[in-house]
Structure formats: structure tokens, C-alpha cells
């Protein structure tokens, strides 16, 4: 049956093979639903520095940084991945959030020199993930790019794939080391075909979602949004604690100083199927919300949950509302362990 998102037709057991490609090989996910903005103007970085959580007083050409757009109550408007490229900023938003981010920036633009163009419809995006990703890029003719050769994340540069100039961006948008490949929309099919011919396994949206959940990578509308602050969603790696004022800073500083974060994102091992959105119960008391669920190949039913800080930690076992006999066991999300400050 064709996946309505990717158009891919899978044979039986295809999900397991796709997932294994993302984990052990090189998986290629269609991610054009991510919002892509081009932000220009002499004041662009300064305005984003004033409105978001991470340190953006400088962002050298060819480098990228994750930051969180928060309101005055430190609730999350969106998580933004920003890259400095060609004298402009390339900004990735959550799927479906480009317009909301543009509106937010427009509201807070007064005399600043800044222009925001939504390039989502004009461009295509693929994510190449897995330990074989660099080999696939080399087989596709990408050699010598610092994005591939340097050991650090968040490097970005133009490379050529299938004769087309594309943006290659090493980042963790799926919660693990990988590469974003952004092409003009007209070049998307050729770039996708070239990467597949070079050894990448096209994966479905279902496999990508299983990968995200297994990695503990929070997503808009599930693990973060305007009902959450970024500390609850384990996005502390995208928060600077010494940059000074930005919108929401006072609340975040208070939550950190007085250890007042009420809920925390946790990874969940489920003993059986359950629906996202239901409560987790400890002795019948509501203790958290299951936010995402997937049947992860090789791991079984897994999920993410926002769990009340006082109700449980690693190893705690909860009942699952609406799923009799199913239990949920808590563990630390891999993405949070990889990105949160070590002194936390």
C-alpha cells in the first residue's frame, strides 16, 4: 500500500528494513513538510537574538544553531534551526509552523532591517541519517565538504548532487547525527534518486516517526508548543543561560534557579499498544501524558511522555489510561542526554 505522505510502496516488513537503515545504514527521509525560511537584513540576527533562547550575538558563515522562539511566559512558539549561509539566515521551522513564525517575527519587528521569505513551497528537503550517511554522500560525489569531513555538528555549505547545487547541513533534527539536504523543488526528484542510487534507503514517514520517538526528539504539537516551556521538553541544549535578556528569559531563569520545572519529557517503553494523548497513572493518579507512540522495530511499543517531576523518574512504571494491562516504564531520552549540559 502506498504511504500517503511519501508515495512509497512497501512490501511486508518494509518498516523494519527502513528503520534499520536509519539506525545501522543510511536512511533517506522525505522532509519537505519542514518549514524553510530565508531571513535577510542587517538586523536579522540581532532581532532573533532578542526573541529566542540561544546565544546568537554571532553566527559565523557556514555554521548553524538551534534556538527556541518563546513568548513572554516562556511558552514555545517553535524550535528554530538557524544556519548562516550566503550572507543570509536559513531557518528551519517545525512542519506547518512557517507562517506562525513569520507572523511572530513580523509582530516584533519595528524599525529593524529584516525580511523573511517563506521558501517552503519552492524547495525540497531530505534527511539522510545513519552511520552510512557520509559514505552515501561520497558515492554521490560529495567529497571534501567541511560539513562531512569535520567532526562537528551544525556545519552547513553548498554541495553539488546530481548536478544541482544543494544545501548540506549536518544536524540532529531526527534526534541523532544526520544530514539535511535542501534543494530547489525542481531538483528534488533528481537529488533523491541520486542519493538512493548511491546507497541510501528511502524510508517512510512512519519509519522516520519511529526513529524520532526512539531518539527522544521532541516535536511541535506533541512534546512542545504553547502549552510548554522548553525546559519541560528537554530543549536545554538550545538555551543559553548567560546571554542576558530575551523574551521569556525571566521565567526560564526562575525555573532553573529554583528548580521549578514541573514536568519533564521522558522516553517510554510500553508493554503493549496505546494511544498518544492518554494519561499515565501512578496508583490511579494522573502523573503524565503520553505524547507520541510508535511500534519501533526491534524495540517494541515505545513512546514519549511529559511526566510530572514529582511522580517518577528513570525506572518508574506507570499504568496507561485506556489500555488495560499495559505498563509504561520511564527512561532518559537519548536526545536530551546528548544535548543537555553535563552539570544538569
Amino acid at each position: 500500500m502506498a504511504n500517503p505522505t511519501t508515495g512509497l510502496i512497501r512490501d511486508a516488513g518494509g518498516l523494519a528494513a527502513e528503520y534499520r537503515a536509519l539506525v545501522d545504514g543510511a536512511g533517506l527521509a522525505e522532509r519537505s513538510d519542514v518549514g524553510r525560511l530565508r531571513i535577510t537584513g542587517a538586523d536579522a540576527l540581532d532581532l532573533l537574538n532578542r526573541l529566542t533562547t540561544n546565544q546568537l550575538d554571532e553566527l559565523p558563515e557556514g555554521h548553524a544553531r538551534l534556538t527556541v522562539l518563546t513568548n513572554g511566559d516562556a511558552r514555545v512558539i517553535d524550535v528554530l534551526a538557524l544556519a548562516a549561509l550566503d550572507g543570509a539566515l536559513l531557518c528551519l521551522t517545525s512542519p506547518g509552523r512557517a507562517e506562525a513564525v513569520i507572523d511572530w517575527l513580523d509582530t516584533y519587528t519595528f524599525a529593524e532591517d529584516i525580511a523573511v521569505a517563506d521558501r517552503t513551497a519552492e524547495t525540497a528537503q531530505l534527511t539522510l541519517a545513519g552511520p552510512g550517511a557520509a559514505g552515501v554522500l561520497a558515492a554521490a560525489g560529495v567529497t571534501g565538504s567541511p560539513v562531512v569531513t569535520e567532526a562537528e555538528l551544525d556545519r552547513v555549505a553548498h554541495v553539488t548532487i546530481a548536478g544541482a547545487s544543494v544545501v548540506l547541513w549536518r544536524t540532529m533534527t531526527g534526534g541523532a547525527d544526520g544530514f539535511e539536504v535542501i534543494a530547489e523543488r525542481a531538483d528534488g526528484d533528481a537529488v533523491r534518486a541520486a542519493l538512493a542510487a548511491a546507497g541510501a534507503t528511502p524510508v517512510s514517514a512512519e519509519a522516520w516517526e519511529a526513529f524520532r520517538i526512539a531518539n527522544g526528539m521532541p516535536a511541535y504539537g506533541r512534546e512542545f508548543g504553547e502549552a510548554n516551556n522548553p525546559l519541560e521538553s528537554r530543549l536545554r541544549g538550545a538555551i543559553s543561560e548567560d546571554k542576558g535578556c530575551y523574551t521569556g528569559q525571566e521565567v526560564i531563569a526562575r525555573l532553573l534557579t529554583y528548580r521549578k520545572v514541573q514536568r519533564r519529557l521522558m522516553s517510554i517503553a510500553l508493554s503493549g499498544p496505546a494511544e498518544a494523548g492518554v494519561d499515565l497513572l501512578a496508583d490511579g493518579a494522573r502523573s503524565g501524558t503520553l505524547t507520541s507512540v510508535a511500534d519501533v522495530p526491534g524495540r517494541g511499543w515505545s513512546g514519549l511522555a511529559l511526566v510530572a517531576e514529582k511522580r517518577g523518574g528513570v525506572g518508574s512504571v506507570f499504568d496507561v489510561s485506556g489500555a488495560p494491562g499495559v505498563t509504561a516504564t520511564l527512561s532518559e531520552p537519548a536526545y536530551a542526554l546528548a544535548t543537555e549540559p553535563v552539570d544538569d
Binding site: 513568548n71 513572554g72 509582530t107 516584533y108 519595528f110 530575551y246 523574551t247 528569559q249
Partner: peptide, 9 residues
């Protein structure tokens, strides 16, 4: 004038 930023927005 007013500009975006500061703790409250």
C-alpha cells in the same frame, strides 16, 4: 519607540 525583546517581549 518600542522594539521586540526583553523578558516580556
Amino acid at each position: 519607540a518600542v522594539k521586540g525583546g526583553g523578558c516580556s517581549g
